[in-house]
Nucleic acid binder design. Structure first.
Lengths: 228, 228
DNA sequence: CACAGAACTCAACGCCTGTAGAATTCAACG
DNA sequence: CGTTGAATTCTACAGGCGTTGAGTTCTGTG
């Protein structure tokens, strides 16, 4: 019955398998990374990703199953912690902070890790599953990176302080484009923020009155609502 | 023709105006604030907001026109800058940082300002219009708050550094619930972060090699995609 | 009391979403 | 050459979205 719709001429990608290796799988993954980075999990659509990859939406579903699985496949783990750890470790104890900041800024310049980070942060703000991923990543990456150089009893607290400053830097620079820090050169940012991280890692960060950790004085923040 | 559907018994809110003052306008605004705070602009739905307010979706539209206008009405301006300014100004020059942090943490505990801040941040991450609102707010609020005490040529740079640390604190504590900083008491956070803000405001934040501002060494971050 | 307007709901439109099943084309192996 | 299976598209479903217009009930003013 193969009655071709002979009228509609231009490059009608007809149904069926293509010849040769198409690399479609990776094209979809790339498009997904970009879309998730630009719009976040909820904002990105399978149809949009498929269009970017020059492919039918159903193919995305065929390869990756659900949107959630596609997301996980696209962002994976933005950083190899051991790599960061190595660079930080070879710095002198006085250069810990500046080295840390410089390394992280470098990761945000490289396109793949930048897109993965953007996707993770943009999604985590409204998507509970992405929150878990980002939290797990920040905890393990930063905590592991500093574990070699700080064995305080306050190590976890220090790690979360570092995380808060770096997260804020990311949001201000990459998401909000808050001037002038968004356009500042790497050296300027390192000079300004490095000492902060240095102090969080090795300085005095405890209230004078309190020595130990006292958890649970705040009600934990509520979840971001039910999944939609 | 008024043939009532007499069968369906339970509390059928019948059509038409209610008696007395219903306070529906404010109920909608409250529900909107909560929904925007929990799910962000795109995640919140007019239908959901209407349901929370016990009202028909069309009424929301009747009062506020479009979703965008409802958002603007719901978040308005989370903080009166002069109020912050006053509290910061009456602190000694040595307590600038800790006072600042303590004041901001207080704002995040109060339910109304917390919800407005959450709504703004959750929305700004994927919505271009909310980005503009948040950026404008951060710039004007923080810059104005420190304008009285810092007249550096670096004042704007200092302001954006403070903003980055406070934004990061907000994200870590309120959005990601990153432990242990998410559950830490106010005093602990103030002791840890206060000195950072103090240094950003009054300390040395410039690279040794560079004196003036050198803008534009980075490509500005791209927009979050076209509005959908 | 009549009448304009505000508050309020119902039902529906058009659009977009994630997902599913069936059909078609190609590659690889026997 | 025939068969099996992967790659790819088409078509469609069911549901949610923002928004609209018409209809109903109440309030306030003259």
């Amino acid at each position: 019955m193969s009655e071709r719709p002979a009228s509609s001429g231009r490059h009608t990608q007809r149904t069926g398998r293509r010849s040769g290796e198409s690399g479609t799988r990776e094209a979809i993954l790339d498009a997904a990374r970009t879309q998730f980075a630009e719009r976040g999990y909820d904002g990105a659509t399978i149809r949009g990703i498929a269009a970017d990859a020059g492919v039918d939406p159903a193919l995305v579903h065929h390869f990756y199953g659900t949107k959630e699985r596609l997301f996980v496949a696209a962002v994976r783990f933005p950083v190899v912690p051991s790599e960061v750890l190595a660079r930080v470790a070879e710095a002198g104890p006085e250069q810990l902070g500046t080295t840390f900041v410089r390394t992280v800024l470098g990761l945000w310049e490289a396109s793949e890790t930048r897109e993965q980070s953007l996707a993770l942060v943009r999604s985590a703000v409204t998507n509970e599953c992405a929150v878990t991923m980002l939290r797990g990543f920040v905890e393990s990456a930063i905590f592991r990176a500093i574990a070699g150089v700080v064995q305080d009893e306050d190590a976890r607290f220090r790690a979360s302080l570092v995380a808060s400053q770096l997260l804020g830097l990311f949001v201000a620079r990459m998401l909000l484009c808050l001037e002038p820090i968004a356009s500042a050169g790497v050296d300027d940012v390192v000079a300004a923020v490095g000492p902060t991280v240095q102090r969080y890692l090795t300085g005095d960060v405890r209230a004078a009155s309190a020595a130990g950790v006292r958890p649970g004085t705040r009600d934990p923040c509520r979840s971001a609502g039910k999944p939609r």
